[in-house]
């Protein structure tokens, strides 16, 4: 059997007295599109950093495609758009895309990358002269360039306008349809609803809900027609008490 794209087992990470991630288990099968939801400070970015080997977990183990995160990254199986990552000034969009292509073993063609990420029109502009939304698209191009099996996106659509968002999610759907695995975090719940086939809700460093969008609504006790926002608030704020919310994991439907 093929190793899952992501397997986090018993991950805990403290920053001082705060448990940013608290005994977290998460397995993502290859080919899945998973949304990571949660209020600010829920541990989404920390979970992603640990998953990518950028931050060592305090306890627990991380495996990507059955190997340590650092090895999977080195082998070019993974690429990411991170919130606190960025480009150096003095390079053009095309420069950074070409760099990414050269770093990965089996890159996509340049024109295809530029078109998919919607950066063709400003490919020759310097990355330090882009708007925030354009920068975000350029970062998508960089992440996409190596045709990674696992694409990790931390709040990818921040600062994108409506048209750019639409193009972005269309590209993500097409990418996932090819058997790639995609994990993204977002505050735009309708994005999770529209794009993901599985939603993982984090609160206070723990998973409080996990399942397809319809199940998430059902678990939170809101009707199927209700917006996911309602379910989200019910799950992340009504959580009981001092021990932190219970983990209500449910099986993902296949």
């Amino acid at each position: 059997m093929e190793a899952p794209a992501v397997r986090l087992s018993g991950i805990t990470r403290r920053f001082g007295a705060v448990r940013a991630v608290d005994d977290l288990d998460l397995t993502i099968e290859t080919g899945a599109v998973v949304a990571l939801l949660g209020p600010n400070g829920a541990g989404k970015s920390t979970t992603i950093s640990i998953m990518l080997g950028l931050v060592p977990p305090g306890t627990g183990t991380v495996a990507l495609f059955g190997e340590p995160a650092a090895d999977a990254v080195r082998a070019g199986r993974v690429a990411a758009m991170l919130q606190d990552a960025g480009f150096v000034p003095g390079a053009t969009v095309r420069d950074v895309v070409e760099l990414a292509r050269a770093l990965y073993p089996r890159p996509l063609g340049t024109d295809r990358i530029l078109a998919t990420a919607g950066v063709t029109d400003f490919a020759n502009r310097r990355v330090d002269r882009l708007s925030a939304g354009e920068t975000q698209r350029a970062r998508f191009a960089f992440a996409l360039a190596g045709d990674p099996r696992l694409l990790v996106l931390d709040e990818p659509t921040t600062a994108m306008d409506v048209a750019a968002r639409q193009q972005f999610w269309t590209a993500i759907r097409a990418y996932a349809a090819d058997g790639h695995t995609v994990l993204f975090s977002t505050h735009q719940l309708h994005e999770a609803d529209d794009v993901a086939d599985r939603i993982v809700v984090l609160a206070a460093g723990r998973i409080v809900a996990d399942g397809p969008p319809a199940r998430i609504r059902a678990m939170a006790g809101v009707g199927t027609s209700a917006r996911l926002d309602t379910a989200f608030l019910a799950l992340t704020t009504d959580g009981p008490d001092t021990d932190g919310p219970d983990t209500k994991t449910i099986e993902t439907e296949h």
């Binding site: 950028l54 990254v73 070019g76 990552a85 960025g86 990414a100 770093l103 990790v152």
Partner: peptide, 17 residues
């Protein structure tokens, strides 16, 4: 400067060591 803008972090999630 490269560290501050997150470039080194970006490179760390590529195959470059």
């Amino acid at each position: 400067q490269e560290r501050a803008v997150g470039w080194l972090r970006q490179l760390r999630v590529t195959p470059l060591t």
